[in-house]
Design a protein around this nucleic acid. Structure first.
Length: 420
RNA sequence: GGGGGAGUGUCCCGAGCGGCAAAGGGGGCGGACUGUAAAUCCGCUGGCUAUGCCUUCGUAGGUUCGAGUCCUACCUCCCCCA
């Protein structure tokens, strides 16, 4: 990154100050376009799941800033590339998704974008594209002749991503080897169709993006640009967005708002400042103030982070409700009725519900065996009282005045049981 | 096509004289300490109607009182030669 470079455009100034930028093929060139509001940039997204998780949040924020600073964002659905299965990552044959499933996923992902970007026909309105549009129509021979001849295998072999795999003797399938060609072709196609001139993405995409720029030059596009953001890890080095409980999804039907809020609330101290800059739109001086908080006070900053980041995806009302639920639960030790609730038929409840089964039904543990172990370890509580007898049953006498029983696993996970 | 090697607890890596629910890590979960953090320490990390029963070591058979372990065939992956 060039330290002496002073951006003229709001776009670059903002994203540089907030830490989104890792590498750029031509800062001043891109800056000029952005300053004139002529920057149309895209980022590609897989359609392998029906929602995106926080790992994709950073690129989404990039698109959002692009739009906010007067330029045009183009999210690209990998509708075509997903059809051959995502070969990256080492886990072998990932199931090939059916076309219907891919369409379903696309719809889910579209929902996410609608929360971050304004779509429409206007100059800075976002436009959703899908590489299925051109990739599925490709003819192999034509592709080889028109596009394939521009790729040098020698150069592809020298790319870091490929070189590493070869050196480590790791499998590199033909499809995967071709991925960069398809991605490069996407870039050119997006330019021809919609005037896209820049591709953004994670720093691991650098090689693929630059390959696209090259291909463009050979195929007669105007000058194209690459901009990458740093790969996100937590302060202790873990990958963002995956926990044992599952990925941190952005769609509410995949992950309750309360859990999403908790994810941010529980981030590591060392991440707060960085995350505030990347995942909220608070002014930088406000962030600097929050970041300066030390010791236990940093929890205030984490709450702000959680609420702001949640508001971005789920809306401010739901974010504040989640914050309030957390406040009651953790700070007042009061029962918050908005905790996740599991309904249960009264007849089933009255028939005698063993504690083990109850915790399984609540989804806090995976099996009665795990429930037993957690009881031994002191990890299960009913209405905040530790469970000691695994043979005990729930009964109506345990219902609180709100008509629920609160089950907890550890200190952070709570579920309400409501017989009805 | 010929020769050699490997597939283990459904998160991953990885030991395993015929007595095995199977060593050890990592990760994860719980507990203690804190601040709903990190670091550290401790416990747990196949299922069930549970002093017992059932299912797990690539797949299918076989030998045996008993098979992750021995035999046969098959599948998959890797290496060397062609």
């Amino acid at each position: 990154m060039s330290d002496q470079f002073k951006p003229k455009s709001d776009f670059l100034a903002t994203i540089m100050a907030r830490g989104y930028v890792h590498q750029c093929s031509d800062f001043s060139g891109l800056d000029e376009k952005a300053a004139k509001g002529e920057l149309i940039a895209y980022i590609g997204f897989d359609c392998t799941a029906s929602s995106l998780h926080v790992g994709s949040l950073l690129p989404i924020m990039l698109l959002r800033w692009l739009q906010k600073t007067g330029n045009k964002p183009v999210p690209l659905m990998g509708g075509g590339t997903t059809r051959v299965g995502d070969p990256s990552g080492r886990d072998e044959s990932r199931q090939l998704l059916t076309i219907e499933k891919i369409d379903e996923n696309k719809a889910g992902i579209r929902q996410v974008f609608s929360k971050f970007l304004t779509f429409g026909e206007g100059k800075t309105d976002a436009f959703m594209s899908d590489n299925a549009e051109w990739l599925t129509k490709l003819n192999y021979i034509d592709f080889l002749r028109d596009v394939g001849r521009h790729f040098s295998v020698n150069r592809m072999l020298s790319m870091d991503s490929v070189k590493m795999r070869l050196e480590r003797d790791q499998e590199l399938s033909f499809i995967e080897f071709n991925y960069m060609c398809l991605q490069a072709y996407d870039f050119v196609e997006l330019n021809k169709r919609y005037g896209v001139i820049a591709q953004m993405g994670g720093s691991d995409q650098w090689g693929n993006i630059v390959t696209g720029i090259d291909l463009g030059r050979r195929m007669g596009t105007p000058q194209l640009y690459a901009l990458t953001s740093p790969l996100l890890t937590t302060a202790s080095g873990a990958k963002m967005g995956k926990t044992a409980a599952g990925a941190i999804w952005l769609n509410e039907d995949m992950l309750p708002v309360y859990d999403y809020w908790q994810f941010w609330r529980n981030c590591e101290d060392g991440d707060v400042g960085r995350f505030l800059k990347l995942f909220t739109e608070l002014p930088l001086d406000e962030i600097a103030r929050l970041e300066a908080l030390g010791g236990a006070e940093i929890n205030e900053a984490k709450k702000v982070l959680a609420t702001e980041a949640t508001a971005m995806v789920h809306g401010r009302d739901k974010a504040q409700a989640a914050a309030e639920t957390a406040r009651k639960t953790f700070e007042e030790g009061v029962l918050a009725e908005s905790l996740p609730t599991v309904g249960m038929a009264a007849s089933e409840f009255d028939a005698g519900m063993g504690v083990l089964t109850a915790f399984v039904k609540a989804g806090l543990v995976a099996s009665t065996g795990e429930a037993r172990r957690q009881i031994k370890g002191g990890g299960l509580r009913i209405n905040d009282e530790p469970v000691t007898d695994e043979r005990a049953s729930l009964s109506r006498t345990q219902l609180t005045s709100e008509g629920v029983i609160k089950l907890s696993l550890g200190k952070k996970k709570h579920v309400l049981i409501r017989p009805e």
